[in-house]
Amino acid sequence: MDSDLDLAFKEAFKAISKLKEPVAADIMLKFYAYYKQATAGSKFPFEGKLDVRNAFKINAWMQLKDMSSDQAKKEYIKLATTVLKNRK
């Protein structure tokens, strides 16, 4: 059974995924990093082409290496709440 934090994280992810208008690249990098840290922790498996875009994504994620999964979920939810509030 999912905790309240897990449910809130999943809802925030769904809400951000459904946005029609683009989010600024720096904010999307934060979402990516928080999501990866929340779901994969500090294991940095990367598959695919290592181009500039993916290098930025990996760098953003690696900066959170000491953050717990729960804290990453909380940060993702907080950022999502801010972005969604500013869209209204």
Score class of each variant (00 low, 15 high):
residue 71 Q to T: 14
residue 68 S to K: 03
residue 51 D to K: 00
residue 50 L to R: 13
residue 57 K to T: 00
residue 73 K to T: 04
residue 70 D to T: 07
residue 53 R to H: 08
residue 63 Q to G: 15
residue 53 R to Y: 10
residue 54 N to H: 12
residue 75 E to D: 15
residue 45 P to Y: 11
residue 50 L to Q: 12
residue 59 N to Q: 14
residue 62 M to E: 12
residue 66 D to P: 04
residue 57 K to V: 02
residue 45 P to V: 09
residue 62 M to I: 09
residue 51 D to A: 05
residue 69 S to L: 04
residue 62 M to W: 08
residue 46 F to N: 06
residue 56 F to V: 02
residue 72 A to I: 03
residue 52 V to H: 12
residue 69 S to T: 08
residue 47 E to P: 01
residue 50 L to H: 11
residue 57 K to D: 05
residue 70 D to W: 02
residue 70 D to V: 05
residue 45 P to A: 09
residue 61 W to A: 00
residue 52 V to M: 10
residue 73 K to L: 06
residue 67 M to Q: 07
residue 75 E to S: 11
residue 65 K to Q: 14
residue 68 S to D: 06
residue 67 M to T: 12
residue 69 S to W: 00
residue 61 W to V: 01
residue 50 L to P: 07
residue 69 S to N: 13
residue 49 K to Y: 12
residue 46 F to K: 02
residue 47 E to M: 09
residue 73 K to W: 05
residue 62 M to L: 11
residue 51 D to E: 07
residue 58 I to Y: 01
residue 74 K to H: 07
residue 60 A to I: 03
residue 70 D to H: 04
residue 46 F to C: 06
residue 49 K to R: 12
residue 73 K to H: 07
residue 70 D to R: 03
residue 62 M to Q: 12
residue 63 Q to E: 15
residue 73 K to D: 05
residue 45 P to E: 09
residue 59 N to W: 08
residue 57 K to H: 02
residue 49 K to P: 08
residue 64 L to D: 03
residue 63 Q to A: 15
residue 52 V to R: 13
residue 75 E to W: 00
residue 72 A to V: 06
residue 73 K to E: 03
residue 55 A to S: 15
residue 66 D to Y: 11
residue 68 S to V: 05
residue 46 F to W: 09
residue 46 F to Y: 12
residue 60 A to K: 05
residue 71 Q to I: 08
residue 59 N to T: 14
residue 55 A to T: 14
residue 60 A to S: 14
residue 76 Y to W: 05
residue 49 K to D: 12
residue 51 D to N: 15
residue 68 S to Y: 01
residue 48 G to V: 04
residue 53 R to G: 07
residue 47 E to I: 09
residue 55 A to N: 14
residue 61 W to K: 00
residue 62 M to A: 09
residue 45 P to C: 07
residue 75 E to A: 08
residue 47 E to W: 09
residue 72 A to K: 04
residue 71 Q to C: 08
residue 52 V to K: 13
residue 76 Y to G: 00
residue 50 L to D: 11
residue 46 F to L: 07
residue 67 M to S: 06
residue 69 S to M: 10
residue 49 K to F: 11
residue 47 E to Y: 11
residue 65 K to T: 11
residue 76 Y to D: 00
residue 50 L to W: 10
residue 54 N to K: 01
residue 65 K to F: 13
residue 58 I to Q: 10
residue 45 P to Q: 09
residue 68 S to T: 15
residue 51 D to S: 06
residue 66 D to H: 13
residue 63 Q to V: 06
residue 48 G to P: 02
residue 61 W to E: 03
residue 61 W to L: 02
residue 60 A to G: 07
residue 49 K to C: 08
residue 68 S to P: 05
residue 47 E to C: 07
residue 56 F to W: 13
residue 66 D to T: 13
residue 48 G to W: 01
residue 72 A to M: 07
residue 56 F to Y: 14
residue 70 D to M: 02
residue 57 K to I: 01
residue 45 P to W: 08
residue 59 N to V: 10
residue 65 K to C: 11
residue 76 Y to P: 02
residue 53 R to N: 09
residue 50 L to A: 12
residue 59 N to E: 15
residue 56 F to I: 00
residue 72 A to T: 08
residue 62 M to K: 13
residue 58 I to C: 07
residue 60 A to D: 05
residue 51 D to R: 02
residue 58 I to G: 01
